[in-house]
């Protein structure tokens, strides 16, 4: 049993975080959304060697990739990091996104020079043949509709493509937690810091617990996926469900505790909250993910200490 990422993985995460913070942090997203030329974050990551990682081939690279996604999430980096790290350039695609029935891909237009592919919940991978304009909406500003070509079966690519975006969301949640904590310490009402009110302390404790529980699950899932456990796909879907549940808790708490200030563009929380939406709603929202988890459990083992969910159950006559 070893529940910690390697020091090498953590170190590349720290290096990416430092470099992105130096380059402006969430301001990189502000620039991209505002259409002004910001720092070239793709290039910053290239110089750190991020694009050379091969998470599908090596467990060490997978851990490093997860740490990089997390660091990118912390500043809501408008670069398809998880998608690129889920790809297989030798198979002809540089970025892979999981899509639902109507394919929409976050950050596709912002990195339109890449050879994009999408994969659906059944594991059918298709090349993206054209990328539509960005939606320019508040909650999916950098999302584009895409058109796709004929698909082929590539179920093996699905678990990682579901898991790495969970790590990006994890990074977003890390930041939401840190900002919320700081706000509770800084903001005074009734003559005292918000941090002194038990109702807020308790909610913060529950929120932190949710985040820690998701953090551990993300590592477990990464292990299951990169070591090819029989339940890798069901684990990845479960991880996605937990990511959605936890993000809801984190951002709800963050917004509530920030008061009106938290909705302002000036405040990073507002950016993280908006930019977390594509990962939370695409390819499937909470109910769809829940339904898919139960479905997947009928065929794949969801390993626990005392069973595998629905696998291995003697089928009973339908009543």
């Amino acid at each position: 049993m070893n529940t910690e990422l390697t020091e090498e993985a953590l170190e590349i995460g720290r290096v990416v975080h430092a470099a992105l913070t130096k380059a402006g942090g969430v301001d990189i997203a502000r620039a991209v959304e505002g259409g002004t030329a910001g720092p070239d974050a793709t290039d910053i990551l290239a110089r750190i060697g991020v694009w050379e990682l091969r998470p599908r081939e090596s467990v060490d690279d997978a851990e490093a990739a997860a740490a990089v996604c997390r660091a990118a999430g912390r500043v809501a980096l408008p670069v398809p990091v998880a998608e690129r790290l889920s790809s297989a350039p030798e198979s002809g695609y540089d970025a892979l996104a999981v899509v639902g029935a109507v394919p929409r891909v976050n950050l596709a237009a912002a990195s339109s020079d890449l050879r994009w592919a999408v994969i659906d919940g059944a594991g059918v991978r298709s090349p993206v043949t054209s990328i539509g304009p960005m939606l320019n909406t508040q909650l999916g500003g950098l999302v584009s509709p895409v058109e796709i070509g004929a698909g082929e079966d590539d179920l093996a690519a699905l678990p990682l493509a579901l898991t790495l975006p969970c790590w990006t969301l994890l990074g977003m949640m890390d930041s939401a937690m840190a900002m919320t904590r700081q706000h509770l310490l800084d903001r005074k009402q009734f003559g005292q810091p918000l941090a002194s009110f038990q109702a807020l302390q308790f909610r913060l404790a529950d929120t932190a617990t949710a985040l820690l529980g998701f953090d551990e699950l993300a590592k477990y899932t990464l292990w299951s996926v990169v070591t090819g456990q029989p339940g890798a796909l069901v684990d990845a879907i479960a991880c996605r469900l937990a990511a959605i549940e936890t993000a809801e808790i984190l951002f709800r708490t963050g917004h509530q505790m920030h008061g009106a200030m938290g909705f302002c563009d000036e405040v990073d929380l507002s950016w993280l909250s908006r930019h977390s939406q594509p990962a939370r709603r695409l390819p499937w929202g909470k109910s769809q993910t829940q339904a898919r988890l139960l479905d997947a459990m009928t065929e794949l083992p969801f390993d626990g200490l005392y069973g595998q969910g629905l696998v291995g159950i003697v089928p009973t006559a339908t009543g």
């Binding site: 049993m1 070893n2 529940t3 910690e4 617990t209 820690l212 529980g213 998701f214 551990e216 699950l217 590592k219 477990y220 479960a238 469900l241 937990a242 829940q290 339904a291 988890l293 139960l294 459990m297 969801f302 626990g304 200490l305 969910g309």
Partner: peptide, 24 residues
């Protein structure tokens, strides 16, 4: 209800992983 059952299994897994974190 079956979906709640699946979610409960997931949350129990998360609790177990948090125990392992403390044990580590």
């Amino acid at each position: 209800l079956k979906q709640r059952w699946a979610a409960a299994l997931l949350h129990v897994r998360q609790a177990r992983l948090l125990a392992y974190r403390v044990i580590e």
